[in-house]
Design a protein around this nucleic acid. Structure first.
Lengths: 340, 340
DNA sequence: GTTAGCACTCTTAAACATTGAGTGCTAAAT
DNA sequence: ATTTAGCACTCAATGTTTAAGAGTGCTAAC
């Protein structure tokens, strides 16, 4: 539907605009070496491209700027594989080469790399809790009334929940309780913990005494508590470097959505497998409609485990960002797969 | 050193400027009911106040604006106790009335209240880890090589550190290790954990075998790891509502310092007991020199436990903010003291 | 000591002219 | 039938001028 020449022109416009953030005129395009036509010809092509909706004018006599449709076409058809420099590759490699055994640190480091290398904001969604299973449960009493239950998952994740213990309970009882819980719940997926607790374990507990029943109610409440998946962000201020964000209103709306971790997490969670690009209005969240979000998933044993993403202006270095996310998500998958 | 009338004028200027963010002229001051002098007289007083450095002009023929010295005088001498409305008091009371047993939640809630009620950015420094003692230690092995040590403090804080176990170690050995650690380390202040580990426990461990020694080295490394005190912030975007921050550069510099949690934590940590006000240049951090920071400490058993703070423009509602911090820090102290 | 009066200063906003980049169209060139 | 040169036209950006208005500092009168 687009002629070769139109595609050529479009490519130059987008490439150039991504670099400069300035509208591109026919003269500037004609000067590019890969272009062998006069400005007048290019003007005609640009008029057509504009009619087709791929580029826009900022005012009647301005140069052209890519539209979202233009970016979409660019991302779908014009992306040339970008090669990260050796320097960049070695930075990544170095970050992963020392033996890291802590999930948090690996993720934080990755977020830092992403935001530092791109000057965009990086977002990483931790592993889905419900895909992990219980490794061990511990209960430690803090006082007569309060105790903390500590859950460790097979991925080494540690979570803790506080709960109240009925004052009729004896010291030794807690230990018995832990034993029962461990015997019955180890290996159970976290997501099924609650129902398992409700079914088998409840009965078992009732055989002891009323006190247990009460404890059980408290404990269940604590375990039910929805602990949202953790979201890691870095380079939130990078957005401020982008010329499209020297409007305080825009900054405000974007920052306010970044504060809503639940919504952000949800966007990443539902992004689907592999690399996904959401340009401007394609984003579900209104506040992100001046931005592009590129997501990539990392896996454990072939199953999707979490998501890494970069958030920047629609005028994003798509090619570079996609390569980088590709490299990093693979690296993350590899690392996690060697662990578990 | 200042006459009563000068003080009156200064008070009106600052009160007014805090409300409007606009320079105040002599005519506007004369109109205030508490003022019974003509604009010309006030102009003379203002000239004196300016000579003394309490107020400033934005340009030759503008109204006056408080200087930092002016704010300092205002805070030190002109502050009238501010009474929070019943509505506000009840919001705070309500937040604390339901039985909360989780430290994080109380703090997060407090941060939310502070930022919501003031439209400034709230910052809360969690309790100093080194003031707490070890309640219990648990070690759970994740795989042949990796294990996680879980530390619970007397305040119910849960921390975990990952470490590597030497592959010569037996399954039962881990349990023995935990027993030794618990027998020797429970009740020890977290800050002394490392030296205690080095002294007594090391000897005890060496009696067993070389494997233990290796484990010990790994474990020690894990425990040494400096885990910074947690910093809670809320209302980071509130700053954007202030007219003094519609300059992207200022936003950027302030946000970049807010990202440096270590430095922020340090500022709060060294703020001293009770309410402290840092105005503009009085702040250590360069990036905060357009802001005021008001801190208050909360205590446990009379000892300083942590800090709550509000960060806003130098044109801050000092009176209200100080009252609010007072109320909230007391409430926090009360809550924690009932727990422990 | 206080105040009215007034010249003066400086900001702000609007009105206007100038410049330059870039377009669309037409007609000539290929 | 394309492609291109030429040219009138548009509009943002910039600078200049002007007028209005807010506020000051000073002087002289109260």
């Amino acid at each position: 539907m687009l002629t070769d020449r139109q595609i050529q022109v479009l490519q130059v416009i987008i490439d150039e605009f991504i670099q400069t953030a300035q509208p591109i005129g026919s003269r500037a395009i004609a000067k590019k070496e890969q272009i062998s036509f006069s400005p007048a010809t290019i003007r005609n092509e640009m008029a057509d491209l504009e009619d087709l909706g791929f580029i826009e004018k900022t005012h009647t006599s301005s140069g052209r700027v890519p539209s979202e449709k233009g970016y979409r076409f660019y991302v779908d058809h014009l992306l040339s594989p970008f090669h990260l420099s050796n320097k960049e590759m070695s930075v990544i490699a170095k970050a992963f080469e020392k033996e890291l055994i802590e999930f948090e640190k690996v993720v934080q480091k990755s977020a830092r790399i992403l935001s530092d290398m791109t000057n965009y904001t990086s977002i990483i969604l931790g592993p889905e809790v419900f895909k992990t299973t219980l490794k061990q449960i511990q209960i430690i009493s803090l006082s007569d009334q309060a105790a903390v239950a500590i859950l460790v998952t097979n991925t080494g994740h540690v979570e803790h929940r506080y709960f109240t213990i009925p004052n009729t309970m004896q010291t030794g009882d807690l230990e018995k309780l832990v034993n029962i819980l461990n015997r019955r719940l180890v290996g159970v997926p976290i997501i099924h913990l609650q129902e398992k607790l409700y079914g088998e374990v409840a009965q078992l507990l009732q055989q002891y005494s009323n006190d247990f029943e009460k404890t059980y109610a408290y404990l269940k409440a604590a375990l039910m508590e929805h602990k949202p998946v953790k979201l890691y962000m870095d380079g939130k201020t990078n957005i401020l470097l982008q010329p499209e964000f020297n409007d305080v209103e825009k900054i405000q709306s974007l920052y306010s959505v970044m504060e809503k971790e639940d919504e952000m997490a949800n966007v990443l969670r539902t992004s689907g497998k592999g690399i996904k690009v959401s340009i401007g209005q394609e984003n579900e969240l209104d506040e992100m409609q001046d931005c592009s979000l590129i997501t990539a998933t990392y896996t454990l044993g072939g199953e999707q485990m979490g998501t890494i993403a970069l958030l920047g202006p629609t005028r994003m270095e798509y090619s570079r960002v996609i390569s980088l996310l590709n490299v990093l998500s693979k690296q993350l998958s590899r690392t996690f797969n060697t662990w578990y």
